[in-house]
């Protein structure tokens, strides 16, 4: 008989919980096959003999004791049935996190040494929002003592976390056949004034703004290119691509017709007349 693999406790608890779910499902299945009443598992306790061994990353793994191996630890797990409402009550809501980005997503976190990262994880700090909360409610020296991360490094991490960042975008149906673009990210707005958004260098209308999301109305000639979100002195960029053929830019000269004739504007002037009133011409 093989000894089986060594695994971290949290991985075991996850896998074992999934097994208990499957056991409940199998027992419940019997009730559906015609039996009016059936047993349901209410409590379970298991004692396992294990040895502890660290892996290369410093995680403690548990390995089941093998034959004739003396001195194993006894690990007691007790599981009881909990209801869905209890799970929801005791689960951290991801939507409630003011900044749910993982620490890995901000560049400065790469500079942290793995032990400091591990200590933050043990302290339950996995997202930028949680790091900010930890730093808001305590003075930096206490945080340094608690996490072992030097104050300067922590400040640099928080500064980087405060930079605007675009993480994703989505084209949504807008009015009058012009699609809107929903831009998601972090720190995309600050205060009540909406940020300035430029599409290919041109300002566009910002319909809704919040730190995590912007809704903007591109102009009809915007088809693809680079966009910028300016929040105060800070800037985040991304690339957009909107469906449909690009409409001609206002004042831009259209392609000549196959016969080589210049097309006329509705007012009778030719497109290559040049700008009127000093503006509105093709760049």
């Amino acid at each position: 008989m093989t000894q089986g693999r060594a695994m971290p406790v949290e991985e075991f608890v996850q896998a074992f919980t999934a097994q208990l779910d499957r056991a409940q499902d199998l027992l419940a299945l019997k009730a559906r096959t015609g039996r009016p009443l059936t047993f349901a598992l209410r409590d379970l306790a298991v004692e396992l003999h294990v040895f502890w061994e660290p892996d290369q990353g410093g995680r403690m793994l548990m390995r089941h004791a093998g034959p004739n191996e003396a001195g194993a630890s006894t690990l007691h797990f007790t599981f009881t049935t909990i209801t869905k409402s209890m799970v929801e009550e005791n689960t951290l809501s991801l939507t409630a996190d003011e900044d749910p980005r993982q620490l890995d997503e901000i560049g400065a976190s790469q500079a942290l040494d793995p032990h400091a990262r591990k200590r933050l994880e043990w302290a339950g700090v996995r997202t930028v929002g949680q790091l900010r909360k930890l730093s808001q409610n305590a003075d930096p020296k206490s945080v340094q003592a608690f996490t072992g991360i030097p104050m300067m490094q922590l400040e640099s991490l928080l500064l980087q976390a405060a930079e605007p960042q675009v993480t994703s975008q989505e084209v949504v149906a807008g009015g009058l056949g012009v699609p809107f673009l929903r831009i998601r990210g972090a720190n995309l707005a600050h205060g009540i004034a909406p940020p300035e958004v430029l599409f290919s260098g041109e300002p566009v209308e910002v319909l809704e703004s919040s730190p995590r999301e912007l809704l903007v109305r591109p102009m009809s000639h915007h088809h693809e290119g680079k966009f910028e979100v300016l929040v105060g002195q800070k800037r985040a960029t991304g690339f957009y691509r909107l469906p449909g053929e690009p409409a001609p830019r206002p004042g831009a000269a259209p392609e000549p017709s196959p016969r080589g004739e210049a097309l006329k504007r509705p007012d009778g002037a030719q497109w290559n007349d040049g700008p009127r009133n000093g503006h509105g011409g093709a760049p």
Binding site: R32, G34, R35, L37, T38, A40, L41, R42
Partner: peptide
């Protein structure tokens, strides 16, 4: 610990 429960 199992308890009797469930119904058809």
């Amino acid at each position: 610990t199992f308890v009797l429960g469930g119904s058809a």
